[in-house]
Design a protein around this nucleic acid. Structure first.
Lengths: 127, 127
DNA sequence: TAATGAACATAGTGTTCATCA
DNA sequence: TGATGAACACTATGTTCATTA
């Protein structure tokens, strides 16, 4: 009978975290999949976090399904004749949806912050 | 060829998070499985995190395998004749191992804090 | 009925493979 | 070879079932 599974509400999932970055990076500069991956790996190297390529693609595809992003296939910058997939906000309200998603994620990140802070206090706090 | 699978190094896993709490709670007061669960659910209710019972048991069993905790079966406090499983640090060096685990988790929690802070800055920062 | 634990099932995510330019 | 995407496989975790007191 297809019971829905309840998440226990632990920390934010990697997928959601990446979707958030995909949106922000779309707001900032136009990049394609593997470049986004490189940028993120570079940014998070000091933290020991190294996402892999399929998570990036899944995050992007999720956002397409959510009606947030759409693809723009282009010849790669410069010489080669290789086709590459860039992203922009979808149609009329893609950017609105994106902003909404970001607001949710802000709440979620704040929640995670609080939980971890609590854990530090509870397990390592003075007293 | 049984290749080892690499975690990408995203946030701390629920299991590790709970093991940390199990250790600290063992340092503080003696409790048994389902009571630990109740306490944690109560503590994290404001954060929308509600662990389930099997995660607690798995965390405790992990710690036994790690040589950190051992079981003490006792009649439940008060009247009933029900047997309940309490925990204490195992043998000679259980508590040492526990402290070591906690040190690792402290590093890990700090790392998570930083990553989330970075995400907040990167995606919502002023500028 | 409360407690413990295991078995089972699904979601999350890492690895490999296929295809194309 | 770089890029994209899907298929596949394993891990993390949630749900259900069995057993006992």
């Amino acid at each position: 009978m297809s019971e829905k599974r309840n998440p226990s509400g632990f920390l934010v999932k990697q997928r959601a975290f990446l979707k958030l970055y995909m949106i922000t990076m779309t707001e900032q500069e136009r990049l394609y999949g593997l470049r986004l991956l490189d940028v993120l790996r570079e940014e998070f190297r000091p933290f020991g976090y190294r996402p892999n390529h399929s998570e990036i693609y899944k995050a992007l595809h999720d956002l397409i399904e959510d009606g947030v992003l759409e693809q723009v296939k282009k010849k790669k910058e410069g010489m080669k004749l290789q086709e590459v997939v860039y992203y922009r906000f979808a149609g009329e309200n893609g950017h609105e949806k994106a902003k909404k998603y970001k607001r949710q994620l802000k709440v979620e990140l704040d929640r995670c912050q609080s939980m971890i802070q609590k854990a530090v206090r509870d397990n390592f706090g003075i007293k």
